[in-house]
Computed example of a mutant assay.
Amino acid sequence: MPQAPIGPKDTLGDIYYKTYTEEARDDAPHHPPWGLKQKDTFMEFAPCRDWYLNSFLPGEVNRQRARTHDGLYHAYIVGEANTRAANYQIVHEWCTMVRERGDWEKYRERLLRWVKDFEQMNSTFAEEKATFDAEKKSEEWGREGLRIKLCAAEELLSKERAK
């Protein structure tokens, strides 16, 4: 495929893409010849153009150059239709996702309140159970103690009667 000659107004990116050949740079990593700087933003035309024109791999640029005008037009229409359809779906799902996230946050807060309430009730229950068990033991011990005294008194009485 014949490459256009380098012109006087060609940028570094133009030269990079015009001089690319499969044989010379087949396995070389792609280092786009950007003139972009750290402070640049995509709010201005020049950085956007520089990024857009220099972000594609030279092999892909050559592949697209080899297409016919009808082939390029067909690829453009199919790509745009798919991109716009995907954008619609992304925006639609984003709205649903934000709503679901809000519902999930409310559910999470409700569960955390329930866990906190459960822990408080569980500690209260443990305290009441300990108190109940202590009372039960003292009552059992009291009953047992009285029974032992009663038995001792009965023995003593029976010994006294026997005498």
Rank of each mutant, 00 (worst) to 15 (best):
residue 138 S to N: 11
residue 58 P to G: 02
residue 126 A to S: 14
residue 36 L to P: 08
residue 144 E to R: 12
residue 148 I to Q: 07
residue 115 V to M: 04
residue 48 C to L: 13
residue 106 K to F: 10
residue 123 S to E: 15
residue 39 K to L: 04
residue 56 F to Q: 07
residue 46 A to Q: 15
residue 75 A to P: 00
residue 1 M to V: 10
residue 83 T to S: 09
residue 56 F to Y: 11
residue 31 H to Y: 13
residue 154 E to W: 03
residue 45 F to D: 12
residue 6 I to L: 07
residue 132 F to H: 10
residue 32 P to C: 02
residue 45 F to L: 14
residue 111 L to N: 08
residue 71 G to W: 01
residue 41 T to C: 01
residue 69 H to Y: 06
residue 128 E to L: 10
residue 104 W to C: 03
residue 11 T to H: 07
residue 146 L to H: 08
residue 62 N to F: 06
residue 45 F to S: 05
residue 10 D to Y: 02
residue 68 T to A: 00
residue 47 P to R: 06
residue 147 R to Y: 07
residue 18 K to T: 01
residue 110 R to V: 06
residue 47 P to G: 03
residue 18 K to I: 00
residue 112 L to I: 13
residue 54 N to Y: 03
residue 1 M to A: 13
residue 14 D to Q: 10
residue 128 E to I: 08
residue 70 D to V: 00
residue 116 K to V: 01
residue 14 D to V: 05
residue 125 F to M: 07
residue 142 G to Q: 08
residue 84 R to C: 03
residue 57 L to A: 13
residue 77 I to V: 14
residue 92 H to M: 05
residue 2 P to W: 05
residue 69 H to R: 05
residue 44 E to D: 14
residue 68 T to E: 02
residue 39 K to D: 15
residue 107 Y to Q: 12
residue 127 E to H: 10
residue 116 K to H: 08
residue 118 F to E: 12
residue 121 M to D: 12
residue 60 E to F: 07
residue 161 R to S: 11
residue 7 G to W: 02
residue 42 F to M: 08
residue 113 R to Y: 02
residue 159 K to W: 09
residue 108 R to G: 00
residue 150 L to Y: 08
residue 137 K to L: 13
residue 22 E to R: 10
residue 74 H to L: 11
residue 61 V to N: 00
residue 144 E to A: 11
residue 86 A to C: 04
residue 70 D to A: 12
residue 161 R to Y: 15
residue 47 P to T: 04
residue 25 R to F: 12
residue 43 M to Q: 14
residue 99 R to E: 12
residue 44 E to P: 01
residue 109 E to W: 06
residue 140 E to T: 05
residue 129 K to G: 07
residue 30 H to D: 15
residue 96 T to L: 14
residue 143 R to I: 08
residue 34 W to F: 15
residue 143 R to Y: 12
residue 102 G to M: 12
residue 163 K to D: 06
residue 78 V to N: 06
residue 123 S to Q: 14
residue 20 Y to Q: 06
residue 84 R to H: 15
residue 161 R to C: 06
residue 72 L to Y: 00
residue 142 G to M: 04
residue 146 L to S: 11
residue 95 C to N: 08
residue 67 R to E: 09
residue 61 V to R: 02
residue 86 A to S: 06
residue 120 Q to D: 13
residue 52 Y to M: 10
residue 100 E to S: 09
residue 129 K to C: 09
residue 29 P to R: 04
residue 15 I to F: 00
residue 50 D to E: 13
residue 34 W to L: 09
residue 145 G to N: 14
residue 136 K to C: 13
residue 48 C to R: 05
residue 57 L to S: 03
residue 41 T to N: 03
residue 144 E to P: 00
residue 2 P to G: 14
residue 69 H to E: 07
residue 75 A to I: 05
residue 30 H to V: 09
residue 49 R to T: 15
residue 58 P to E: 03
residue 162 A to N: 12
residue 24 A to H: 04
residue 41 T to L: 02
residue 152 A to Y: 03
residue 148 I to K: 09
residue 10 D to S: 04
residue 7 G to Q: 15
residue 4 A to F: 05
residue 119 E to Y: 01
residue 98 V to C: 07
residue 148 I to D: 14
residue 120 Q to Y: 08
residue 124 T to K: 07
residue 131 T to Q: 14
residue 117 D to C: 00
residue 19 T to A: 02
residue 117 D to F: 07
residue 119 E to S: 02
residue 109 E to Y: 05
residue 75 A to S: 13
residue 137 K to R: 10
residue 107 Y to R: 15
residue 117 D to G: 04
residue 69 H to M: 00
residue 121 M to K: 08
residue 10 D to M: 03
residue 68 T to C: 01
residue 61 V to F: 00
residue 33 P to D: 14
residue 45 F to Y: 15
